[in-house]
C-alpha cells in the first residue's frame, strides 16, 4: 500500500500539533471574554462602576482583596515550574522525578482552586449586580473551570505515570498536560493583572 508513504513526518507528532491548534482556539475563546471586559471597562464612567443607592444599602461593594490572589498567583506559577520539571525529568528518563513533579503540580493546582473558591466567599458583590461582577465571575469562573480541567488532565497523566507508561522517548501526554497547564497559568497571570492590579 503506497498509502503507507503518508506516515507521520519528522518532528512534532500529529497529536501534539492537533493539541497546539486546540490551544489556539482556547486562546481565542478567552480573547473574546477579555475583549468584552475591556470594552465594558472603557465604557464605564469609573472602574469599579458606580452603584445605585439600593445596592449600597444591600451591602454591595466592589472591592477586591489583592493579597490572597497574589499568593494564589505565586502558587500557580510555582506549579508551572514543577510541571516543567516533570517534563524535563521524563525527557531524561527519570520516572521518579517526573512523578514528584506531577504530584506537586497537582497538589498546587488543587490549592489554587480551593483558594479561589474561598476568595469567592469573601466578595461583597455578585454576578448580577453590575458589569463589574458579571465580567469578574465570568472570567475567573471560566479560568477556574480550565484549571479544574487541567488538574484532571494531570491526574490522569499521574495515574498513567504510576503505571510506568512514560519513557524518555514516549511521554507525549506529559508534555501536552504541561502545555495546557502553562496555558492556564498564562491566562491567570493576564487575569490577575487586569482584574486585580490595573486600577
Amino acid at each position: 500500500m503506497a498509502a503507507h508513504g503518508t506516515a507521520e513526518r519528522q518532528g512534532m507528532t500529529n497529536s501534539m500539533l492537533g493539541f497546539i491548534l486546540f490551544l489556539a482556539s482556547e486562546v481565542m475563546f478567552f480573547g473574546g471574554l477579555f475583549a468584552a471586559y475591556f470594552i465594558a471597562r472603557a465604557d464605564a464612567p469609573a472602574w469599579p462602576p458606580p452603584l445605585t443607592p439600593e445596592q449600597i444599602a444591600e451591602g454591595v461593594h466592589l472591592e477586591l482583596e489583592v493579597l490572597l490572589p497574589a499568593i494564589s498567583t505565586g502558587i500557580l506559577v510555582l506549579s508551572s515550574v514543577t510541571m516543567q520539571y516533570a517534563v524535563w525529568q521524563i525527557q531524561k528518563g527519570n520516572q521518579g522525578g517526573m512523578l514528584w513533579g506531577l504530584f506537586i503540580s497537582l497538589a498546587l493546582g488543587i490549592v489554587f482552586l480551593a483558594a479561589q473558591l474561598y476568595d469567592y466567599t469573601q466578595l461583597h458583590f455578585r454576578a448580577d449586580d453590575t458589569i463589574y461582577g458579571t465580567t469578574f465571575y465570568t472570567l475567573t469562573g471560566f479560568h477556574g473551570a480550565h484549571v479544574a480541567g487541567g488538574a484532571l488532565f494531570i491526574a490522569v497523566v499521574t495515574v498513567r505515570a504510576l503505571g510506568g507508561q512514560f519513557t524518555a522517548e514516549n511521554h507525549e501526554a506529559v508534555e501536552a498536560s504541561s502545555m495546557y497547564w502553562h496555558f492556564v497559568d498564562v491566562v491567570w497571570i493576564a487575569l490577575f493583572t487586569v482584574l486585580y492590579i490595573i486600577k
Binding site: A36, T130, T134
Partner: peptide
C-alpha cells in the same frame, strides 16, 4: 447565556453593559 439565565449585565446598559 449568562445574561439570560444568571442576571449577567454584559449587554444590559442598566448594569453598565454595552
Amino acid at each position: 447565556f449568562i445574561d439570560r439565565n444568571y442576571g449577567g449585565q454584559f449587554f444590559d446598559p442598566n448594569g453598565g453593559g454595552n
